[in-house]
Design a protein around this nucleic acid. Structure first.
Lengths: 214, 214
DNA sequence: GAAACGCGATC
DNA sequence: CGATCGCGTTT
């Protein structure tokens, strides 16, 4: 199977559409995943849905397998049968991206012993008011770097005595992946649009509504 | 400040509305928090929004402070200035409810040394096809039990060498809280209604849409 | 009942 | 930077 993800990056009209529209869609996602203006980590799942919808838009429902259990490790979606992991992060730094959401010291160490890149990755760097991008990091790029620098430089274990959320890829490794010549990117200028949103209104209306069937 | 939460449980029309409508609203929440029919833990935040909307519906926006950062520990909302924690769980057992989402062994132990109940609790037991309920567990009930049985029987630490998500209240403690004579309950018969939902449709439509401003 | 697992922002 | 924290379901 040749890799089809690359077609997104070569489709000029689609690239333009992504550049125009992704910031707006991700902003909607923020409203729906926030409380008191602070974004929850579950934003990641909503953004993933937006990226999967992009795959469906480009390749058609028949070629996008989205029926993957929500707690499946690593794989989020399959395109023409090939697994893809979707990861998103906000800011200038490439630090903090989790490979697995495990904190227990022994389990984390065990993971790091067994880990090997297994999945193409779609990585979105959000950077409001600045530049970021949508990156396609092929599995072969990940493997090449992993084999070159080794797990000690590639994987960052949760620090004991603190309150982390999982095992990370090091900032240095992710930076190398993103800069690799075989990594594809669509640069995105993250401008906000104006949106008003009240997360409770919908539910208050449903509580108020007079309907006999409910 | 006398406690106003109790008014929900004494308002017969509201009780009837909750019994009729909560299952439907929580079912909507499930669709929006699922992938491949499996529910993600973030369902808790959506259900919380539904419960907060209920407070707004009953007491008015002016008396419900919902502007609390999403990563605030323990407190989810304030009613007439009093903090409330909202917790939800599915099933027959009262096990697995987290007091804090910390797994690191040292931090978890430290939490258990310092913990004391500080918040009224609204607890929803979902039990599809069976009976469950919406419980109001006053802080004084929590404190009385905590002082009686002690932290060792009240708090369950994450088990080392496994992959847990945090520090729990023991099943035995939560069962006692729920059965306390000062705990209020609205019994709920969790019947499902029929709903169709495609989590990607909305986003695919937004990708397709032809709009110049986007 | 025990053990598995998802999702990064913020101060 | 280095530290903090939210949300339970499923097999």
């Amino acid at each position: 199977m040749t890799n089809r993800l690359i077609e997104i990056f070569e489709d000029e009209k689609l690239v333009a559409r992504i550049q125009k529209r992704l910031p707006h869609l991700f902003q909607l996602a923020e409203f729906e995943s926030s409380r008191a203006g602070k974004i929850g980590m579950e934003i990641g799942s909503v953004r993933e849905r937006i990226i999967v919808a992009l795959l469906i838009y480009k390749f058609g429902e028949a070629n996008v397998e989205s029926e993957i259990p929500i707690t499946e490790s690593e794989v989020d979606v399959k395109l023409f049968g090939e697994p893809i992991s979707v990861k998103t992060i906000t800011g200038n730094s490439f630090g903090g991206v989790k490979l697995i959401w495990t904190v227990d010291a022994e389990k984390a160490r065990q993971f790091s012993e067994e880990y090997q890149p297994r999945c193409d990755m779609l990585f979105v760097q959000i950077n409001w008011g600045k530049e970021g991008g949508l990156y396609y990091i092929p599995i072969k790029v990940q493997r090449r770097l992993f084999d070159k620098i080794g797990k000690k430089e590639y994987i960052k274990l949760p620090k004991a005595g603190t309150n982390p959320r999982g095992v990370e890829i090091t900032k240095e490794a992710l930076t190398s992946l993103v800069e690799d010549t075989e990594t594809k990117v669509i640069k995105i200028n993250w401008q906000r649009s104006e949106i008003k949103f009240n997360p409770y209104k919908r539910w208050v209306d449903l509580w108020k509504e007079d309907r006999n069937e409910l």
